[in-house]
Design a protein around this nucleic acid. Structure first.
Lengths: 236, 236
DNA sequence: TGTATTTTTCTTGTCGACAAATAAAATACA
DNA sequence: TGTATTTTATTTGTCGACAAGAAAAATACA
């Protein structure tokens, strides 16, 4: 009964063609929620046994994840969850701030009425998650909120880069919420509301400004956190 | 003797692990050079026979190409070369201009001495291609030149998006050079030289300005071309 | 002749197996 | 005891095969 393998899954049958997507979604979530921390080895055979499928669909999912930079594959050797370069997050921050600006700006320009309903939906989900103080849900709904804004801007190139950055951000924020008190999320709720207002009013400049401020505020907080942690590490 | 299949390839042996990359590189080149035009069907079995390998590595290459948006995969049905939305290139142009600016700017900021040699190398390759009036090489070396600038800026997020845009640009420019006279490339050579100078001088603002002007100039030309073509199409 | 239904063909998604490449363990040797 | 070499074990990359879905062809029916 001390069996680690939890194979009482009641779904032995699976639709044709859903295999890759299933593995992809599962691994992606586990990576972004740090269930699989950076550097974790990923064993194809083990996964195949756990999900009761052959290695072929699993490999294809891994190829896709590697393309998105979520895992690293050493030729002929192991594959593992991609590491985060905490020592130099600047490229990440630069890209994040710019994409916050651009996507919010484009949303103000190009959104359609039906987009606002979706955006407001995620906004409320995030507010609810802040109330219940559930970090994982907070992080995920925050990312979904901004991804929805980007979608309404209707530039697939920006959207896909922004999605990738938000994904990476989920992993970084996960550490943030683990070690920092959670007073900021409420402020984010207010800022989100202001962004929605600017988008709805089609005020491009205001949207740009708010997106930039929102992003820089997040960056600043994360940088402050890491600066403190680094000092602690050195002190030890 | 009227056999279409050209299977007198003198390389029956192939190193382990090189299969996927080989297929990926081959298909990528053929797609970007429009040897496989947008909408072309891609048959796994046919490819497997041509390259004398099983379908497994081919499928993995296809998954990767799909992740980069170069092919579209219909579930349980065919997979084909991704189409280009000529009717609305604005998202592409917006992203392209911004990335030209950002990458050139970052290059001026973050490049190292050894980067300049690489950049100048591609610059000369491009100038040479202009002399010989070889469109395919012009397009490819132009993309390589700007990709090298992006690399020297050292922001992998921007670099990968820019690479994707340059790839897409290769396909679009391919049509440009097919139907337009080729007097512009020489002007591009001069603009490239100016960009290199600004980067070498670490003049961030000048680099930004030149990158923007260069990009907008290209966009303008392509738009002019398509406007003319559209009118012709309507006239017919 | 035109439409609906069945049959056939073709392509894809998945599987289990095998061999090459690498890492780990075991052994030999100084 | 420590290093070099062989042996074993593990894991990956590739293969050929098969069945599910969808498209095309063939047939039935009006």
């Amino acid at each position: 009964m001390t069996d680690i393998d939890t194979d009482n899954s009641p779904i032995p049958e699976r639709k044709r063609g859903s295999g890759v997507k299933m593995v992809y979604d599962l691994l992606r979530d586990e990576i972004l929620d740090l269930v699989l921390p950076p550097g974790s080895p990923i064993d194809e055979v083990q996964l195949a046994e756990r999900l009761k499928m052959s290695r072929t669909p699993i490999r294809e999912a891994l190829v896709r994840l590697a393309g998105e930079g979520l895992i690293d594959t050493l030729p002929n050797r192991s594959t593992m969850v991609a590491n985060i370069d905490f020592l130099n997050l600047n490229p990440f921050f630069d890209a994040l701030v710019l994409m916050y600006r651009v996507t919010t700006r484009l949303a103000a320009q190009n959104h359609r009425p039906e987009d606002l309903a979706i955006i407001r939906g995620f906004h409320e989900d995030y507010a609810a998650a802040v109330q219940t103080r559930d970090p994982l849900t907070m992080i995920a709904t925050n990312a979904a909120f901004h991804a929805a804004i980007a979608e309404s801007g209707r530039n697939p190139y920006f959207t896909s880069l922004f999605r990738r950055l938000l994904d990476e951000g989920r992993r970084i924020l996960r550490l943030y919420y683990q070690s920092y008190d959670e007073q900021f999320p409420q402020r984010f709720v207010d800022e989100h509301a202001a962004m929605i207002a600017a988008i709805a009013a089609r005020d491009v400049e205001a949207a740009d400004r708010l997106g930039k401020a929102h992003a820089e505020q997040i960056v600043e907080q994360v940088q402050k956190l890491f600066a403190r942690n680094n000092k602690l590490d050195i002190a030890l």
